[in-house]
Design a protein around this nucleic acid. Structure first.
Length: 263
DNA sequence: ATGCCGTATTATATACGA
């Protein structure tokens, strides 16, 4: 079973690339972020035509998230229950026995700004809710555009970017606190090449010079961790003429061992 | 470096992303 996350930076613009990528990578679940379209504009028919069910939570101009799934998602929840938010950032569903949360974390803009304060409040609310979800669903995947790096390995210039947005201690504290609920960064389960990034600034030829950050993550619960066989960042879509500034991240999870079988 | 690029808006500049 494969699950993936991809910030497409406008599904209206990127739809052909998403369809092409799914044809080449028929994952079981694809979480999308930054749809940048309202619900009535969501291209459900195009996904249905290639064999995907969709759940979506759109918004005009900004944000917007979706789950594309081979089998229908159950018990779908939009945003964080109990956290009043006018932005469409989270969509959750149960797919083939796994609770899947797809999220577009706030950017935060700049430490000290109102948007940074919102990011902190959102992260606190998300953690409270993920804790509850984990208790109810031991098999859980939290994936999306986190807009946070774990440490210097995730940053192209960690010295000069220390303390800047995505690299502050406050953001990383929240990311570690999420992990401490009983989650695991699937990418770091395996050896990874240096300077592995999932996002590159459009400006100043960021991708060509590999000036990027790893801010798109797939966290898996402790129950799923032994079943993870790989996690990769797929830079193939960057070959398109107008690519997203994010690359998809894909995790592979093998089926649970049959009850009673020994390790 | 108040810059760079890309997307969306009621738009021909501005806001935002990260």
């Amino acid at each position: 079973m494969k699950l993936a996350t991809w910030n497409v930076n406008s599904l209206g613009v990127r739809l052909p690339q998403v369809l092409e990528w799914l044809a080449a990578n028929p994952v079981d679940v694809l979480a999308l972020q930054e749809l940048k379209l309202t619900d009535d504009k969501f291209p459900a028919d195009a996904f249905e035509a290639i064999g995907y069910h969709a759940q979506w939570f759109g918004q005009k101009t900004y944000n917007g998230v979706a789950l594309l799934t081979r089998t229908p998602a159950d018990a779908v929840v939009k945003n964080i229950p109990g956290f009043d938010d006018d932005m469409s950032r989270v969509i959750t569903g149960t797919v083939e026995g796994i609770r899947v949360i797809g999220a577009y974390f706030p950017n935060g803009q700049e430490p000290g700004s109102d948007k940074f304060e919102y990011k902190m409040e959102w992260l606190t609310a998300l953690r409270r809710w993920v804790k509850d979800e984990l208790a109810a669903h031991p098999n859980l995947v939290l994936m999306g555009d986190y807009n946070i790096t774990f440490d210097e390995d995730d940053v192209w210039d960690p010295v000069n970017l220390e303390g800047t947005i995505h690299c502050t201690e406050e953001e990383r504290y929240h990311l570690r606190a999420l992990v401490a609920l009983g989650l695991c960064d699937s990418y770091r389960l395996f050896p990874y090449p240096p300077k592995s990034f999932s996002w590159w600034d459009y400006r100043d030829a960021g991708f060509r010079r590999n000036r990027g950050m790893r801010i798109d993550h797939i966290l898996v619960s402790q129950a799923l961790k032994p079943r993870v066989t790989g996690c990769v960042i797929d830079k193939t879509p960057r070959k398109n003429e107008r690519p997203s500034d994010h690359a998809p991240v894909v995790v592979e999870i093998i089926p649970a061992p049959a009850p009673g079988s020994s390790a």
